[in-house]
């Protein structure tokens, strides 16, 4: 999305809703939390668009998303994580064999479970980088920390994750 245009709320929902949902799900492991976050973010975006001035739209959006997420963490008590939803299975699009499907689902479950064991600061940067696809600078902008800190958190997060997963993958 171009930085010099102000998108409509529908544009934001269509273009970023799924990413926000995945960001939230990978951070919380909980579908309800993820849906709540998408709703909350889109609500804040709708209100914020009235006063939004063209600039780094993604930076603005992910700051809102991250703040909404942190607010929800502060408000809610930690809930137990639910197993992976059916979506995880049906979105495997390449018609692999049943064994491969099973292996992929297990791998996804293992990674998700390992992600949830990372400290929130690390998990947040890893998810923004590897799930959402932001650059270090965009993450620094969204999380409001120096790029060097982003680099360190991503590295330490992935390294911890590696220790939590069974190798070879």
């Amino acid at each position: 999305m171009s930085d010099d245009l102000i998108p409509t709320w529908e544009d934001v929902a269509r273009s970023y809703g799924r990413k926000i949902y995945n960001f939230a799900y990978r951070l919380t492991g909980n579908r309800d939390d993820a849906s709540d976050l998408v709703q909350e973010v889109l609500l804040r975006v709708r209100k914020g668009l009235a006063s939004y001035t063209p600039g780094s739209f993604e930076g603005w959006l992910w700051r809102i998303t991250r703040n909404a997420f942190l607010d929800s963490v502060r408000k809610a008590k930690r809930r137990p994580t639910s197993p992976l939803p059916d979506d995880d299975r049906i979105s495997l699009v390449s018609s692999p064999s049943p064994d491969e499907v099973l292996a992929s689902v297990r791998l996804s479950e293992d990674i998700q479970s390992a992600l949830l064991k990372l400290p929130l600061d690390f998990r947040e940067c890893v998810v923004l980088c590897d799930v959402v696809g932001l650059s270090y600078e965009e993450i620094a902008n969204a999380v409001d920390i120096p790029v060097g800190t982003v680099r360190s958190r991503i590295h330490r997060g992935r390294k911890m994750l590696r220790g939590l997963l069974t190798w070879p993958l």
């Binding site: 949902y21 995945n22 799900y25 993820a34 998408v38 979105s91 998700q112 992600l115 590897d130 799930v131």
Partner: peptide, 9 residues
């Protein structure tokens, strides 16, 4: 990490 499926909202 990047092989995690993108879930549908």
């Amino acid at each position: 990490l990047r092989s995690l499926p993108m879930l549908r909202a």
